[in-house]
């Protein structure tokens, strides 16, 4: 097991190098000049040049790339152009916000999705299946921001049950939860459908397997069949989807954090792209890449835990 993990980490190194190189190149290819953005449209040519020099952007691109790689290796991505803060400490500061949102979003999505999927599969092609699948699919049929706006208008602007902006008072758990509720539900609804669909088809698949048929024919009560034989193996595709939709989830957090004015990595990234804050974008994307690699590893390990037939060596 340990050697498997070590091997996975080694093979991840090229992916990581690829990601950080790609993001460096892409940021330099993007039109737009951080100096002009900071100084505004009324700036004179001289002041733009002065600021560029101050930010080291007048250096040859290969030298910039070299400095960047040296920085990455030593764990120092530099100082943000937009906020003048060490970029990695910003990522570290905002990570808990996004992680909380993502976990809460997945929890809501999994809860709704698995329930809907199992019901739909057990009552396949019945009216219930159609209704449940339909409701579950509406989530995927609406952009996250539409779901978010509906929730905001209904539960914040009109009913006043939940706040509309921010992450809440850091010292008050209940206040943070109140701020988390709507964004997490928006995210959960949008990931629920995909989980529901995967659950439905994997439950169907398993219901068709011999040992379940046997169990059924032996007259075991439906409920115990469902739980014992169906639900646990069905978790495998659900876990896969959580791994696979990590990127989707991150896209979702970008939108929900923007709409609900929540601090977080998604908004950090968007704001930094707008400002052409190269170091901050690079560090944030590198962080996403590492998370992706780690999450996929965890997903593979979860397979092993859920399905005894799979073993890594």
């Amino acid at each position: 097991m340990a050697s498997y993990i070590a091997k996975r980490f080694l093979t991840s190194i090229p992916t990581f190098v690829g990601v950080i190189t790609l993001v460096f190149l892409v940021m330099r290819l993007i039109p737009g000049d951080p100096a002009i953005l900071i100084l505004g449209d009324s700036a004179t040519a001289e002041s733009v040049a002065a600021l560029r020099a101050q930010m080291g952007l007048d250096q040859p691109i290969l030298l910039q790339y070299w400095n960047y790689l040296v920085g990455v290796v030593s764990g120092d991505f530099g100082i943000s152009i937009r906020t003048s803060r060490p970029v990695f400490s910003e990522v570290a500061r905002l990570l808990p916000y996004t992680a909380t949102l993502a976990v809460a979003g997945i929890a809501v999505g999994a809860l709704l999705g698995i329930t809907a999927g199992v019901i739909a599969a057990l009552r396949r092609n019945s009216a219930l299946d159609i209704v449940v699948s339909g409701i579950a699919t509406v989530g995927v049929a609406m952009p996250v921001f539409t779901i978010g706006i509906i929730l905001l208008v209904a539960f914040s602007y009109n009913l006043g049950w939940f706040p509309s902006i921010g992450a809440g008072d850091a010292n008050s758990f209940s206040d943070r939860m109140r701020h988390l509720a709507l964004p997490a539900i928006a995210l959960g609804i949008s990931s629920m459908s995909i989980i529901a669909r995967m659950t439905r088809s994997s439950v169907l698949e398993i219901l068709g397997l011999d040992y379940v048929r046997t169990a059924r024919s032996k007259g075991l009560p439906a409920r115990s069949i469902t739980l014992k034989h169906v639900l646990k193996p069905s978790m495998i595709p659900v876990v896969t989807i959580i791994g696979l939709s990590f990127g989707r989830l991150m896209s979702g957090t970008v939108i929900t954090e923007t709409l609900f004015v929540r601090p977080g990595l998604g908004r950090l990234l968007i704001d930094s792209i707008y400002a052409r804050d190269y170091p901050q974008v690079e560090a944030t994307v590198a962080f996403f890449a590492v998370s992706f690699i780690v999450i996929n590893l965890l997903v593979d390990l979860a397979y092993a835990a859920l399905d005894p037939r799979i073993q890594y060596s």
Binding site: T15, G18, V19, L22, V26, I30, F246, G247, R248, M250, S251, V254, I255, L269, I270, I273, V285, F288, A289, F292, I293
Partner: peptide, 14 residues
């Protein structure tokens, strides 16, 4: 893997 490591939206946006 490299492309998947970028969230879809951010890849498209960039």
């Amino acid at each position: 893997d490299t492309m998947l490591a970028f969230p879809l939206l951010l890849l498209a946006l960039t």
